[in-house]
Amino acid sequence: MGQRADNISPKAPARPLGGIVRAGVVTALAIAFVAASVGFVYFLSQLRGAETAPERQADGIVVLTGGSSRISDAMELLAAGYGKRLLISGVHPTNDANDISRSLPDSQLLMGCCVDLDHSAVNTRSNAAETRRWARERGFKSLIVVTSNYHMPRAIVELAHAMPEIELIPFAVVGEKWRDEPWWTSGATLRLLLSEYVKYVAAELRVRLADLGLDLTPELPDQPGGASPRRPATAQAN
């Protein structure tokens, strides 16, 4: 009996699978956090802290609505001869040229001759689709893009994907709040930047997948004359 017991080898200790899984999860989360932090820093590096005149003139100008002073800055660029025509993309369906003229009295002549309104766009992606249709109808090969500095990276991603043959010249609008205080001292500004960063990453991923032939959310084809469905009156762009 004693000899038989001696021949029985002891059981190997059980592998700590739970600990390995936990370590793997923690490592993955740490890598994701570092990657997100590096990406956020890169995103911030693209944001301009001051408004600078476009490097040169372009065929046209497009302004994406949704932020303060975007339209007025775009009108100033048009008046200065930086483009032949201006597209205001994402105008609320209940607003027309007269509403904009009343808010910008000095722009009435330009509104009558050189400004087009897009009421169809509901987000940055549809801004890009409507801008592409407008630019192609007029044979434009270069555009000055006017939008807020925090929105510019995502806008350029969407516009460049929609019309890679057209040169894009960014003009970033810098709001008063951005100039008055550092973004990291304002909870509201920080939340805005984090939200925009997430949207920017999502746009980058979707565009890169589409370039590989994996377009999970294909856009509707261009419709002539801007006949795409109009958004509800309560919708807002960008």
Rank of each mutant, 00 (worst) to 15 (best):
residue 178 W to Y: 14
residue 94 T to F: 04
residue 139 G to M: 12
residue 98 N to W: 10
residue 4 R to Q: 14
residue 124 T to E: 03
residue 63 V to E: 00
residue 16 P to G: 06
residue 130 E to A: 11
residue 65 T to P: 00
residue 39 G to S: 08
residue 194 L to K: 03
residue 34 V to P: 01
residue 43 F to E: 05
residue 64 L to K: 01
residue 155 A to D: 10
residue 33 F to K: 01
residue 125 R to F: 09
residue 203 A to F: 05
residue 201 V to P: 03
residue 180 D to P: 00
residue 209 L to N: 14
residue 196 E to S: 10
residue 58 A to V: 11
residue 142 S to D: 11
residue 72 S to D: 15
residue 61 I to S: 04
residue 84 K to L: 06
residue 187 G to W: 12
residue 214 L to H: 11
residue 213 G to E: 06
residue 174 V to A: 13
residue 205 L to C: 14
residue 24 G to K: 10
residue 105 P to F: 06
residue 112 G to F: 03
residue 211 D to M: 10
residue 231 R to K: 01
residue 221 P to Q: 01
residue 186 S to L: 07
residue 5 A to K: 13
residue 212 L to H: 07
residue 212 L to F: 09
residue 95 N to E: 13
residue 111 M to T: 04
residue 111 M to P: 00
residue 173 V to E: 08
residue 22 R to P: 00
residue 140 F to C: 08
residue 71 I to W: 01
residue 44 L to V: 05
residue 48 R to N: 09
residue 56 R to Y: 03
residue 34 V to M: 05
residue 159 L to S: 12
residue 147 T to Y: 03
residue 214 L to A: 13
residue 224 P to L: 02
residue 159 L to A: 13
residue 137 E to A: 15
residue 226 G to R: 01
residue 79 A to G: 13
residue 9 S to D: 13
residue 183 W to N: 03
residue 1 M to I: 13
residue 172 A to F: 05
residue 57 Q to M: 09
residue 138 R to E: 08
residue 11 K to I: 10
residue 88 I to N: 03
residue 71 I to L: 14
residue 130 E to L: 04
residue 226 G to F: 01
residue 183 W to P: 04
residue 177 K to G: 14
residue 4 R to L: 15
residue 124 T to D: 04
residue 237 A to I: 04
residue 60 G to R: 05
residue 213 G to R: 07
residue 48 R to H: 12
residue 77 L to P: 07
residue 226 G to P: 00
residue 162 A to T: 09
residue 186 S to G: 11
residue 121 A to F: 04
residue 83 G to T: 09
residue 100 I to N: 00
residue 143 L to W: 09
residue 223 Q to I: 07
residue 116 D to W: 02
residue 30 A to K: 02
residue 63 V to A: 08
residue 8 I to M: 14
residue 96 D to Q: 05
residue 33 F to C: 15
residue 50 A to D: 08
residue 133 R to Q: 14
residue 39 G to E: 03
residue 162 A to H: 07
